[in-house]
């Protein structure tokens, strides 16, 4: 039995030390995921939506933060919509709610990262990350967007950001708008395949 004083001490320790926080979070959140996955012989022709195979587990607050951060990474521009408009928040919720070891590990990193963002926002401005203006949000992200340049104390936060950027990009570029953004024009049946056009090869000095 853990008394309240111990719990408070843990929380204080957690706010200062990322690894402790992560271990605790991973244990606490593991119980949230209990479904067995899709098995070794799933129907490959069904269209699956997030939530079809295992319950989504992010809270409304977490999903709000998930959307803000995903859109900081992939905002709308002249070529394509933002990550959240492409359904990436649902995908991230599916990802961190999945029962597989990789996803459960990522769940711990993402939820710890969310907590770190909130803590950092409060430390800087006394408000939740979502309530910060774009400049302040960028100021936090700028310090954690590259693991190799992040301060030692922010290395774990930077690793979280790197993972979150990967998941956001993976969720976005695998959708129709993401494929279009990159100029992917395949996955259509063709009668013949002729290779690259001669004018492109000339430009690249290729035979």
């Amino acid at each position: 039995m853990i008394d309240r004083r111990t719990t408070v001490k843990w929380m204080l320790a957690a706010s200062a030390a990322w690894p402790l926080l992560r271990r605790r979070a991973a244990r606490a959140e593991a119980s949230a995921v209990s479904v067995q996955g899709y098995g070794t012989d799933p129907n490959l022709l069904t269209v699956y939506h997030p939530g079809d195979l295992w319950p989504l587990t992010l809270t409304p607050d977490q999903r709000r933060l998930a959307a803000i951060l995903a859109d900081l990474i992939i905002p709308a521009d002249e070529s394509s919509p933002s990550a959240s408009a492409a359904g990436v928040v649902e995908f991230i919720d599916e990802w961190v709610s999945a029962p597989y070891p990789r996803h459960q590990r990522d769940r711990g990193i993402v939820l710890d990262g969310f907590k770190w963002l909130e803590t950092e926002a409060i430390r800087r401005s006394g408000t939740a990350f979502a309530e910060l203006g774009a400049t302040d949000q960028h100021a936090i992200c700028d310090e954690i967007c590259d693991v190799s340049r992040a301060a030692d104390a922010k290395r774990d936060a930077a690793r979280f950001f790197a993972l979150y950027r990967d998941v956001t990009a993976g969720g976005f570029y695998s959708t129709p708008v993401g494929r279009k953004d990159l100029g992917y024009i395949g996955n259509v049946p063709q009668a013949r395949f002729d290779g690259p056009p001669p004018e492109l090869l000339r430009k690249l000095n290729l035979p």
């Binding site: 900081l72 070529s79 590259d146 990009a169 993976g170 695998s174 993401g178 494929r179 953004d181 992917y184």
Partner: peptide, 29 residues
């Protein structure tokens, strides 16, 4: 230029310096 999927745009910090935002989208392209 294979079909994009999970993994597209991932692990590119060594090329992008950790870009995010509109710059990241330009980098992925």
């Amino acid at each position: 230029r294979r079909m994009p999927g999970y993994g597209t745009g991932a692990g590119m910090e060594w090329l992008t310096g950790g870009s995010y935002g509109v710059k990241f989208k330009q980098d992925v392209r």
